[in-house]
């Protein structure tokens, strides 16, 4: 049986196509629903498809950190060029940002401890994120976390929404180096985008007992999904 070159005229192929053409499908959604859903992607692309964006689900608990870094002014290019596997630490005080101890910086992220007990995570460039390095950095900053690539973990029932619970919050950019579309209120069901230089503030003290932060890195879309999970009860899957 030769199926190699031209299988599409075979009875079996016709059978497959005919059978699937009979498959009942939901009604096609309105075009407006598609364009509304695509508008955040379009805005991101129009903004140069670059810079650090942070996307929070308007109605959901998950937070997406987009790792598109070209708009971000690298604070220290020589340090930012450090390979992800070789993080650097410094104990100097940064009076501009208010951070006081132990910043950890790699090519992919900067994690700093703030005076009020929170930590600021900034995903800096379009470098591939090394999960082990980020997990190690978070652990050293006292943040219980699980970081994985291409794997997505959730707990059922789900812990509280990390944004509503005060575990995660977003800092708008202090000084954008390039004009970007101003943030606006999202339409119902639409994701919210924020501009380059956005950082995520993590408040470990607000994490509910028995939880940890899950960070799932998708190299396909160069984004990190983060959410709370219960340390002793979660499941992971490799595909949607």
């Amino acid at each position: 049986m030769n199926h190699d070159e031209n299988p599409n005229d075979s009875p079996l192929s016709r059978e497959l196509r005919d059978a699937l053409s009979e498959l009942a499908t939901p009604e096609r959604p309105p075009l407006a629903a598609i364009t509304s859903r695509g508008r955040p992607y379009q805005r991101r692309r129009l903004a140069g498809f670059a810079g650090l964006g942070v996307t929070a689900a308007a109605a959901g608990a998950a937070l997406t950190l987009l790792l598109t870094g070209a708009l971000v002014a690298t604070p220290d290019r020589s340090t930012a060029a450090t390979p992800p596997t070789a993080p650097t630490r410094s104990t100097s005080t940064n009076t501009t940002t208010g951070t006081v101890v132990g910043p950890m910086q790699t090519a992919a992220f900067i994690l700093t401890s703030n005076a009020n007990g929170t930590d600021t995570l900034t995903l800096t460039t379009n470098q591939m994120l090394d999960p082990a390095t980020l997990q190690q950095a978070l652990t050293q900053h006292g943040i219980p976390a699980l970081v994985k690539t291409g794997t997505y973990c959730t707990s059922n029932p789900a812990p509280p929404d990390p944004v509503s619970a005060g575990v995660l919050s977003i800092q708008l950019p202090r000084a954008p180096h390039r004009m970007v579309p101003a943030p606006r209120s999202p339409a119902p069901g639409e994701v919210q985008e924020m501009a380059a230089h956005t950082a995520t503030v993590i408040n470990p003290a607000a994490m509910p007992s028995g939880t940890e932060l899950f960070f799932g890195y998708s190299s396909n879309i160069h984004a990190v999904f983060t959410d709370l999970i219960y340390t002793s009860s979660y499941t992971c899957s490799n595909s949607p």
Binding site: G60, A61, F225
Partner: peptide
Amino acid sequence: LNAGASWWHRRSKETALS
């Protein structure tokens, strides 16, 4: 089919679909 693209859209449906 992108493995991560719609993960968080799926999240709310995961219980029912798993």
